[in-house]
Amino acid sequence: MQTVTLKPKKEMKISVEVENITPDRFAGKSEKEIQAIEAWMGNQKTTLGDLFSVKVEGSGTAADTKIVMEGDLSRVKRIGEGMTAGLIIIKGNVDMHLGAKMNGGKITVSGNADSWAGREMKGGEIIIEGDAGYYLGGGARGETCGMRGGKITVMGSALDYVGDHMCGGEIVVKGNAGILPGLSNNGGKIVIEGNTSRPGSEMVKGTIIVNGTVEEMMPVFKLEGSEAVDGVTYRKYTGDVIVSGKGLLYVK
């Protein structure tokens, strides 16, 4: 078992990109080696050692590696990008692209995560105890697939476009979600415990369940009657009919 603890050394006023903070990159490495790993602050190339104090205990494979990050991480982007195994525990808020393209392992955030958390992720799990920003589990601009697999759970609320262009996997938002969750959904599952508006536009496949209030329905769904899911009765819709969609939308 390897535990790596990172704490910011200085105040980060401009954004920092740390796509190399992953259990895969840290596994079996010493403090010195981790300190030398490349990072970017704005347009300046720097190292993790320059930005963070690094403490390593033990040694292990990626699956056996735990990264703990503490402090003000609200300008730190791309933590855990493409990780395939292991654990990242973040105590605080993080900037955009948390766990982008991740394939396995687990990330937990005690605070909020900014937009594009879990962007294009393929596997693994992200748990955000605070709120999430825009495009949770979505795709970058223009991509035909956002999230393809894995699971994202948000204990708080999420902003607009939850699961944009999602092609698989599952997103659970315990609070409210902004407008247009599941936009162009192509096979993912989204559960929203709170309220939202205009879910499932351009949806082709997949499932969206809303347990709170849908403030506005898109007029592109066909009501199929009522159906019970996990013991709860919903109105069941299919659509988006404009794109001959076979998506399922369950609304209380």
Binding site: R141, G142, T144
Partner: peptide
């Protein structure tokens, strides 16, 4: 314009 993903 319509393929920002290509620019990546």
């Amino acid at each position: 314009i319509m393929r920002p993903e290509d620019t990546r």
